[in-house]
Design a protein around this nucleic acid. Structure first.
Lengths: 217, 217
DNA sequence: GACTCCGTCAATCAAGCGTTTTAATCTCAC
DNA sequence: GTGAGATTAAAACGCTTGATTGACGGAGTC
């Protein structure tokens, strides 16, 4: 793996830590590997962040800021756009956040990790970032259902879970999927194709779902 | 945490390792902690399993055996049963394996963890356990699609991913879901309700999916 | 030039890790 | 009881980890 080269030492450390932490988790990531990737001395972590945990906390805070700025819950589409298109935008951007390889690709991955192995920072993340996304998706879903379901109903919540679950699946089971279907790509075109499938699958489900849904919430 | 007390050293080690590995993952779990929980000497791992990875592999194999025996994917249904019922059985058993409590609650957690953070043991797991499950689900899905799609087609693979993704979602995002919807239960009745929703959602999607699916595999 | 502040560096620390060795202990047929 | 094999226990090995040290150099000030 090549090195992070932009910015001063502190910025390079954040960038490198984002990649490593998001891929391996807090415990499995090592300070030495982060510093190697950042082209920095191991002592730089102590100097700039106190310790490994200080670096992680700074990173998580930064992830919120960047995530909210780069992926606002509105996703560029106004509420006047057709619900079908808004669903597709939601799915596509969600996938991009998890699978994308851009400059801040680690933001989405880091949050997904936090979601599975929560730290005390989870409360803040849910309130600030996840809840707005959840509300937005439930609004879209309720609109597509078009059977009187309100966004706050259990029915909308369950359907929203079904959509998000499909999006996260390839991210969380990448190794297995690569073995079951080695030809499945996750480049930009592959992500787009996947977003298309998940949107079609979910639209088909939502538009024809029986009216009664006994699942609780 | 109190100690595991039943069985001989080897059994106690397996039981303790199941709890620790499933909670912390392979890397973060330590042999010393496992042995402390099992009331065993650290050398016992080397004696009975060779090394840490040997213990993990034995455990993973046991996890699949136990999980599949307790919750067989067809739940007693033969291939002559309607595809809709077989899908429901698959989803319900999958959820039970992941969310079920009791003596062997760690089985599903361990498998999910291996899927997200693969170890060298993944190859064997895929070949022996995951692939057959994948084939079974794709057969069910292809039958419900009823549009000429074969189980080995990309279309069936994508739809199977959509189903499995929904099943794993609540398990992998439990902390977040508990905050978004504190009333959602995961006892036996809650699991059954969730299985009903996922099955209905997927059936609705599969039965009305447009014929053309450009997603790759 | 002398001094200070800031940032970096190689070197090192103690602690914890998985693993191994060696000896002690247990089990049980004879 | 005795010896042999199976099992456990204690201690140490080599290694990696996160954290820390003290020296070094550049930039700015007087």
């Amino acid at each position: 793996m090549d090195h992070v080269e932009v910015g001063d030492t502190k910025e390079r450390l954040m960038e490198a830590a984002g990649r490593i932490f998001s891929e391996k988790g807090f415990k499995a990531a090592t300070v030495r590997e982060i510093c190697r990737l950042a082209n920095a001395n191991v002592a730089a972590v102590h100097y700039h962040f106190g310790d490994k945990e200080g670096l992680y906390k700074s990173l998580l805070t930064e992830a919120f800021e960047i995530g909210l700025k780069r992926y606002p819950p509105s996703l560029g589409l106004g509420p006047e756009a057709p619900a079908e298109e808004r669903l597709h935008a939601f799915v596509h951007s969600f996938l991009s956040r998890l699978m994308g390889g851009g400059r801040f690709a680690w933001c989405g991955k880091l949050m997904a990790r936090e979601s599975e192995e929560p730290t005390p920072a989870l409360d803040h993340m849910v309130e600030r970032y996840i809840l707005p996304l959840s509300v937005l998706l439930r609004q879209i879903v309720a609109e597509i259902l078009n059977d009187g379901t309100r966004p706050e109903d259990a029915r909308a919540f369950n359907c929203a879970m079904s959509v998000v679950g499909q999006c996260q699946h390839i991210f969380r089971n990448r190794a297995v999927i690569d073995k079951l279907s080695p030809s499945l790509k996750t480049d930009e075109a592959g992500i787009a194709a996947l977003a298309r499938h998940i949107t079609d699958f979910s639209l088909s489900a939502l538009k024809h779902l029986p009216r009664h849904d006994s699942a609780q919430a």
